[in-house]
Simulated scan of single mutants.
Amino acid sequence: MSLAESWDRYAVGSKPRRAVNANGETTWLNWTQYADHGPNESVLGPVAGRRVLELGSGSGSNLAHLVTLGATGRGVDIAPARETVARECWGHLPGLEFRTAEATTFLSETDETFDVVLSIFGAVWFVGPDTLLSLIRSRMAPGGILAFSHLPPGSQGPKAAEAGLRHDRTPDEWKRILTGHGFSDVRVSLIEPPEGKAVGTMLVRALAT
């Protein structure tokens, strides 16, 4: 089974996002694995008029929210089922496009540049950073923002780490790696989990120099 087929099978079994969150909003951005938890789009600064790329855009809900705030959005996901759902849910929004592609392939082939690149439990967690980050930087405008989130190192247990299923990095490792690939002002924070939960979320933000 190919990587795309594996992710497509996972996507087909995923539950749809709620139509409305706890605040009564129909669109919102969520950085963590928990509903109605963690910071919002303010991590990215003002997004109106900015070109945003999401790597691992899933059902498109996070990117759609940024487009409702005035951004232009391009979502890329390796699973064809994700593009289908995203288009059904958000295809009516102007300035928003979705594409099925592997992240490095898309970045290698596109001639677009972006002001913001985000990955929420997405490609940055699953693709080798020495390959992916250099490609991301090559498609970013100077001063652009890269932001991504994933589970903290070790939270998946030793078997996942040994199998190389995800690219867990400590805060110091991310700072070193990102700086080495043309990013600056790297900020890494751990979002504490909600009450009753044990695992938080790592959030990383950096500027394209």
Rank of each mutant, 00 (worst) to 15 (best):
153 P>W: 03
36 D>I: 08
168 D>E: 15
102 E>M: 04
163 A>S: 12
148 F>M: 07
68 T>M: 13
40 N>F: 01
64 A>I: 10
21 N>C: 04
153 P>S: 04
22 A>H: 08
96 L>W: 03
75 G>A: 12
149 S>C: 08
68 T>V: 11
5 E>W: 02
54 E>A: 11
159 K>F: 00
31 W>F: 09
97 E>K: 10
135 L>Q: 15
134 S>C: 05
20 V>W: 07
114 F>I: 05
89 C>S: 13
83 E>V: 13
1 M>V: 06
38 G>L: 09
85 V>A: 13
162 E>Y: 02
159 K>C: 00
28 W>F: 08
189 S>H: 12
14 S>V: 02
186 V>M: 05
12 V>Y: 07
168 D>L: 04
160 A>D: 01
113 T>M: 12
68 T>P: 11
188 V>C: 15
5 E>P: 00
6 S>D: 11
147 A>R: 10
44 L>Y: 04
161 A>N: 07
5 E>R: 13
189 S>K: 13
29 L>K: 11
116 V>G: 10
14 S>E: 10
201 T>N: 05
7 W>G: 03
23 N>S: 14
203 L>P: 08
140 M>A: 00
158 P>A: 06
173 E>I: 08
134 S>K: 14
115 D>E: 14
92 H>M: 04
135 L>D: 11
36 D>Y: 12
49 G>R: 04
81 A>P: 00
34 Y>S: 05
140 M>W: 07
208 A>Y: 01
107 L>W: 03
126 F>D: 00
133 L>R: 00
10 Y>L: 03
99 R>M: 13
127 V>F: 04
116 V>E: 08
179 T>F: 05
